[in-house]
Every structure is written in C-alpha cells, then in structure tokens.
Amino acid sequence: MAEAVLLRNVVALAGRFPVLAGADLTVAPGQVVLLRGANGAGKTSLLRLCAGLLPVASGQALVLGEDLSLDSRGVRRRVGMLGHATQLYDDLSVRDNVRFSVRAGGGSARDADAALEMVGLTGRLADTPASRLSAGQRRRAALASLVGRRPELWLLDEPYAGLDADARGLLDGLVTSAVAGGASVIIASHEAGQVEALAQRTVTVAGGRTTEAVLVP
C-alpha cells in the first residue's frame, strides 16, 4: 500500500518567508507520528501543508495518493485537522456547528450527533452557542467535527493544550480507534510523556526542515 504522506524536499512560503525550507516526511498508513520542535520551527506549517492549505512552492508532496503540487483541493475532504483555531461559528450552537462541518464533508446529521456523543457534548451543552463554551469545550466540539468526518489522515496541532485529564484520555482513545480503523495520525506537540505512548516514530522539526529521531520501541 502507498504511503499516507510522502514529502520530499518541500519548500512552502508564507508571503516571502519560507516556513518550510526543504522538509521530508514519510508516514505509512496506520502509523502515528509525533512532530517535535521549538515554536516557529515549522510544525504547524507542515500540518497545514499536508491538509492542502499551504501551497507547495517546490519539492514533491503526495498525501493520500494525491499530488499536492497539482491539486491541493482533493485531499481536503479526506483529512481532519485540529489546530489552534477551533473553526466554530460563535453564534451557532455546538450541534449546528458540528452538523454543518460533518454534512459539508459528506456525512449525515446522524454522524454528527454520534460524534457529539463520543466527545461527551450532549444534552444542554450541545445546544449552547459556541461563544459560551470554555476553551476546553471548544476543543471538544472541534474534535467532534473531526471525528464525525471520519478522516483518513488526522493532523493534530498541539491537541492536548487546554484539555483536562479526562479529555486527554478521550483524545487518546479516539486516536487509537482511528488508527485501528486504518487512519494515519500526525501529532505536533511539545509535551512529552503521554503522546510517546501512542507514537511509533518521532520526527524533529527545526528551521523549516525535518530530521528523523531515534525510533521509539
């Protein structure tokens, strides 16, 4: 089976600044890869590039079999990204937000409700406007949107930030079951410990380039 992600010497620009300056990355299907690196090293850009949001300036980038330098749009429906921004409409309720996102990805309202159940946003909480949620609850809602879309590649950017112990356990559980279902996962995180239990490999990002670190047993 082809690699889920295959990047070769990829350069990507934000304005005129090279956020990625020749990055390489390979992720096999069903693999969990941890990205490490200081702030501004290019972790988020790497994830955004894999999601087809950041154009490839040069180099080769294949994600889920699609060549991003030719078409960056096809891959977007198939990846799920959880970033710093939670992409919620403040005026809509949690349920409406998740339903919109899931149905836009081709799912049904029932998929959305099931996802809400999975992340524990049910009852009154599901009908609360997103503007009234706490930061942690917003992230749960964003997670529900992601889960409901059943992506083949999960791109998680600092997913543990602002989550309590319960939610962290929940996230780990969701990642594990997604991987069991054949999805691949890339996690960018400063935090050691918890993530390393999930990840099979660690890749270090610095100065817009990547280095493979020691294999985690």
Binding site: V11, F17, P18, A21, G22, R36, G37, A38, G40, A41, T204, A206, G207, G208, R209, T211, A213
Partner: peptide
C-alpha cells in the same frame, strides 16, 4: 532560505 536553515543550528535539536 539560508536564514531559515540557520535557525535550526543554535537550538541544536537532532
């Protein structure tokens, strides 16, 4: 590009 690569050196990660 050169400056971007140089950013990686002082931290010395990896």
């Amino acid at each position: 590009l050169a400056e971007r690569w140089a950013e990686a050196v002082p931290s010395g990660v990896g």
